[in-house]
Design a protein around this nucleic acid. Sequence first.
DNA 1: CGATTTTGACCAGCGC
DNA 2: GCGCTGGTCAAAATCG
Length: 323
Amino acid sequence: MSNETKDLKNYHYTSSYNHYNTNQNIVNLPYVSGPSTYNANMVSSQISSDLHSSPQGAYGSGFELSPTLNEFLYSSIDQENGFYNAYTYNNCQKGDEVVGGGGAIIKSESRVSASPSSSEADHHHVEDSGKSLRKREAADGGEADQRSQKVVKTKKKEEKKQREPRVSFMTKTEIDHLEDGYRWRKYGQKAVKNSPYPRSYYRCTTQKCNVKKRVERSYQDPTVVITTYESQHNHPIPTSRRMGTFSGPAASEYNSSSLSPVSDFIINNTPRSFSHDDLFRAPYASVNVNPNYQQQQNQDILRESEFEFLKEMFPSVFFKQEP
DNA sequence: CGATTTTGACCAGCGC
DNA sequence: GCGCTGGTCAAAATCG
């Protein structure tokens, strides 16, 4: 099969769901599982039980949700050297699926430390020198150059096996690309295996900021958008866009006195002014939020400490920011 | 007209 | 080695 045919296959689903752009839905969020061992085990057990099951089996175990109860938010931080990272990601094989709840699925992100040849971290470095060189190399036809390039690449791979930290979370929203205050440029879109929805790739437009994010819709629950951030912004939120194209209400319209901080976060459905520095500074690698789990499990109470944890994780979300 | 999106092509990693 | 998949590039198209 030619590459052409192959790639055509990847574009069966172009950006055809942008017409969703109406309003955002509300997600309640009573369950928060913080830096507890339980949480890590929950995730890992879920991985082990659901990883190899069919999509239909994805509702079992862990923070299970009825297929119809799709209001939830699941987030996970893939933090370098993160303890929970090992549970939530590194136990997975490529292509394995991590069920976040509500039947939505996050593809495993973890070829990181387990794999000798990591992908994204390499790309960050190879991108500028290597990828742009590829075509030049081909044009030059320099075999020696290619070889030396390969050596360089290998060396760089070895140098940087660790991958940039990642944060992924699910949001019940009809909007595909959630406004988070930063400016993004879309640089690619791919069809995702087993999913009718494409995955979009965005890069932060700020110079020298190599933060990327991927956005895809859960095929299990199309009302859920899975957003994965990679790396950290090295700059403040562009002021001109702080609330710029955000299609929801302006920040000033929120009255946090009538809403719990958590529900504020979810209702907005957009982590406005979402600071990833805050996320990556957090000492934990996994946060799971599930509105229904509370009713199913006694121990799943929104504990004060866990709430504090979340606040620590999402300070800019939990505390109203001045414009 | 610059910025952004679209999309065909290319590449690397991985499993078989 | 081959095919599949994810990730990225970059030219063309579109947008504001």
